[in-house]
Each structure stands twice: as structure tokens, then as C-alpha cells.
């Protein structure tokens, strides 16, 4: 099996499956009475954690690609990024429906008064254009450079997501600090990857020319 086939026929289906697991777990845990205490908070905790983890994974694809030379894994990035978005949407909807009972006035008030809600809200909004422009059509329409610039919104969204978590914790900030630490590592890896790319352009670029324009668009914006 070629590496491309491995990524598209094995890794991607596995990632699809993995993407449904947190959601399936929530349904299972609630249905079987495994969740003691605040069930909505549980939904929000699992979805929120999934968003942060998948955002970090999305940001890690390029450094991983540079480190291994496995250019094919770029084909998994959209799937991981969209997983982050879908869980952010679930997280957001649970807040709007269960916490605020769909009251726009209450939501506006909450967002205006409480910085951690504002930061969470803003981070979610930043992900919306990224999800919308994740299609091949939008990559083509925007062109690699502009698409890439737009998708740099993932950086403030990820930082905002971690800050949102940090601010909601009452006292024991160890877990949010772990997330902040991992995000710093991911950022460091990306810096390293950007420099590594500059140093050895010939082979990588030669390979990229062989692939289809769409894949190239995907790769160019890595």
C-alpha cells in the first residue's frame, strides 16, 4: 500500500471514527446514568476539551509533516479542523439552549459582563469563517495566499479557547495550565516547521508540483 493510500484509506476513516467518539461517549454516559451532578456541565466539559485537543492537533499537522516528510498527512487536516468546529458548535449550542434558554438578551448581557464568556464566544465566531471556507471551492476562490492568511485566525481562536478555560476555573488551574503549555509547544513546533521549510525547499516543492492543483492548494497553505 502506498503512503497516500494508507492516509486516505486507513488513517482518514479512523479519524472519522475517532471524531464521533466524544459525542458517542456523552450520549452513552448520559443515557446510562454515569454522569453524577451537572449533566450540562459535563456536556460542555467534554465538548470544550475536544475542541481544544482537536485545534491543537490541527495545528500539529504541518510540524508533523515536516518532521516525518510524510506530506500525505496534510489530507487529514481539514477533517481534524472541522471536528474542532463541530464540537465548538455543540459546546456553543449547549450554552445558548441550556444555560441561556435561547434568550438573546441574557446572552448579550452575559457576554458583555463576563470576560470568559466573551472570549469563548469570540473564539467560536473566529472558527465560523474557517469552517465555511474549508471546502475545495473556497480554497480555489480565495487562492492559497489569502486562504492561508484567513486561516491564521486559528491562532487567536486557540489562545482564546485556552484563556476561556483558564478563566472559568475557580481555583485549581492545573489543567488549563497544561493546555496552555501544550499550545506553547505546538506554536514552537510550527515556528520550527516554518524555518525547516525555508531551508529545504527543492525536494518538497518538486513533489508538490506532481500532485493535483487541489492538493497543491492544500499543501501550499500548510
Amino acid at each position: 500500500m502506498t503512503r497516500l493510500a494508507l492516509v486516505t484509506r486507513v488513517v482518514k476513516p479512523l479519524l472519522y471514527l475517532a471524531a464521533t467518539l466524544p459525542c458517542a461517549w456523552i450520549v452513552f454516559a448520559l443515557a446510562t446514568g454515569r454522569v453524577e451532578g451537572d449533566q450540562v456541565k459535563y456536556i460542555q466539559h467534554v465538548t470544550g476539551t475536544t475542541v481544544l485537543v482537536t485545534l491543537f492537533l490541527t495545528l500539529s499537522v504541518t510540524p508533523l509533516r515536516r518532521a516525518t516528510g510524510w506530506n500525505e498527512i496534510i489530507r487529514t487536516r481539514r477533517l481534524i479542523g472541522l471536528t474542532a468546529f463541530w464540537y465548538a458548535l455543540l459546546h456553543f449550542v449547549s450554552y445558548v439552549v441550556f444555560d441561556q434558554s435561547l434568550s438573546l438578551a441574557d446572552i448579550a448581557d452575559d457576554v458583555a459582563k463576563h470576560p470568559w464568556v466573551l472570549v469563548g464566544f469570540a473564539s467560536f465566531l473566529l472558527l465560523v469563517p474557517l469552517a465555511v471556507t474549508s471546502t475545495n471551492g473556497w480554497i480555489r476562490r480565495l487562492g492559497g495566499k489569502r486562504w492561508q492568511r484567513l486561516h491564521m485566525l486559528i491562532y487567536p481562536a486557540a489562545v482564546g479557547g485556552v484563556l476561556h478555560y483558564f478563566w472559568l476555573v475557580k481555583k485549581d488551574v492545573r489543567t488549563p495550565l497544561w493546555f496552555a503549555g501544550v499550545l506553547a509547544l505546538v506554536f514552537a513546533a510550527r515556528l520550527w516547521a516554518a524555518r525547516a521549510r525555508g531551508r529545504r525547499p527543492a525536494r518538497a516543492q518538486g513533489r508538490r508540483r506532481e500532485s493535483s492543483p487541489l492538493i497543491r492548494a492544500g499543501e501550499d497553505v500548510a
Partner: peptide, 16 residues
């Protein structure tokens, strides 16, 4: 200072 006290979630219920 960080969150509203206007409503609460009764454990076992979904809406506040």
C-alpha cells in the same frame, strides 16, 4: 465577578 448568579442549574435538570 466572573459569572452570573441570576440563575442556577438544579442538578438533574437541563435548563436553568
Amino acid at each position: 465577578p466572573r459569572w452570573s448568579q441570576a440563575r442556577e442549574r438544579r442538578i438533574g435538570e437541563f435548563f436553568k
